[in-house]
Structure formats: structure tokens, C-alpha cells
Amino acid sequence: MLRADLLRSEIATTFRRWRTLVLLAVLAGVPVLVGVAVRIQTGRHAGGGGGPAFLAGIAGNGLFLVFTALAVTLPVFLPMAVGVVAGDALAGEAHTGTLRYLLVAPAGRTRLLCAKLVTVVAFCLAGTLVVALSALATGALLFPLGKVTLLSGTSISFGEGLLRALAIAGVVALSLLGVAALGLFVSTLTDSGVAAMATTVGLVLTAQILDGIPQLQAIQPYLFPHYWLSFADLLRDPVYLDGILRNLGLQALYAAVFGSAAWARFTTRDITA
């Protein structure tokens, strides 16, 4: 019973920080921007085509703004926000010196690391939900809602479309696990929160760039962003699980590898800050 105490404090502390709230506000702003842009565009001339996936569908159905917003934020905004929170998780506490007081409390190193990991995962979920909900609200305000035409051509009811949107948000949140574990590991390496955040965000961008170079096909299946956009397969009928399962497997692998590395490092390092 007492074990949850630290976790509750950790989550409350993280979500009370201005920085966390600003990150969430930025994430909430992206769907609004996309929605307003599409609305202005469709006012001038119908159709258009091109742009990110689902963009064309928004004008016909506001629910498509949820899919679009997640597709737009997943490559950059979401992993950057997660990188900031995860990178700062331990390094930031080391920088301000509060880490030593948590450890002599004694929080326990493994227990503290677990609380940090769960908090970062909670942030992944919160960030994704903020994008999805903001998109849903914007979509409902600016566009009509109704039956959803899937990528495979069949139609489903709005209610089922909503369920699929929820499933997509869940998959997107889980897609961020790799970044979360990577950021937490980087966070155990340094006593500077800023350095850890910058390194994590840098790694996210590097992985994205490498994933875009055709000559590097051999290593691409092992890059954490490689299967990210496979969540679109949830909009097929029947649902196409191959890419999604590969994505989740890869995220689990990253979480296991970098989670263990973070544990090995954090439980043995000297706390000199």
C-alpha cells in the first residue's frame, strides 16, 4: 500500500510543473492548427488532395482530424515531448540535488526508477490523449461527423469509428515506449537535465533521418520509429495487424533493453551531485 506513495508523488510533481503543462498545451494546439487550416482551405476550393494521410477526409468527417493529428504529431511533437520529460526525469533531479535527498529518504533506487518509468509512460498516454481529444473537439466543431469510410472502402458507424480512434490512440501511446525507455536511460548517464533532454531529442531526430535514407534499409527494421505509422492499418477492414504487432514488439524490445540498461546504470552509479 505504501509503495504507491512515491509513484503518486512523482506523477503529481510531474504534472504540476509548468513545463509539462506547456508541452501538453503545445500538443493540444497542433490539431487546432491543422483543423483551422483545413477549414480555411476547403472554404476556398473543395478537394485538393496531397498532404499527410487522412487530410483529405477531414472535410467530410471531423473524426478524421483525430487520425490526421496523431499522424502529424507522432513523428516529431510527441516523441520530442516524451524525450523532454524522460530525459529530465533523473538528470534533472540530479542537477538540482533533490536526487540525493530522495535516495536518502530512502526512496530506493529501483523503486525510484520504476516510479519514473511509470510516470513517463503516463505522460506518453496523457500526451496522446490530449492530441486525440483536442482533435476530436476541433473536428466536431469545424466539420460534420458521421459514418466513417475506412481505407479499404467499407463504411462503419460513427460509434465504431470512435472506438477505432481510441484503439489508435492506445497504439500511438505504446509506440512512444521506446523513446521513453531510451530517454530514461540517457537520463541516468548525466547530471545535467538539459543535456539529457537534448541528447534524447537528438536521438529521436537521428533515428527519423536514418529511417528515411533508402540505402540504410538493412538497419531500418530495428529503428524505433520504423513502424510508427502502421497504426493506420487499424482503419482497414479487416484490421491488418502485421505492422502493428511488429511495432509493439519493437517498442517492447527497446523498453526491455534500455530499461535494463537504465536499471544497471542507476543502481550502481555514484551519486555525486
Binding site: 505504501l2 509503495r3 506513495d5 512515491l6 503518486r8 508523488s9 510533481t13 535527498y101 530522495l102 529518504a105 530512502p106 526512496a107 530506493g108 523503486r111 525510484l112
Partner: peptide, 13 residues
Amino acid sequence: LRRFDAADPAADP
């Protein structure tokens, strides 16, 4: 203080 106290598993909430 509440945060540091929460970090101590022996502390009674």
C-alpha cells in the same frame, strides 16, 4: 517536505 516524506517507504501517509 510532503514529497521527500512520500519517498520514504517507512513513512505513514
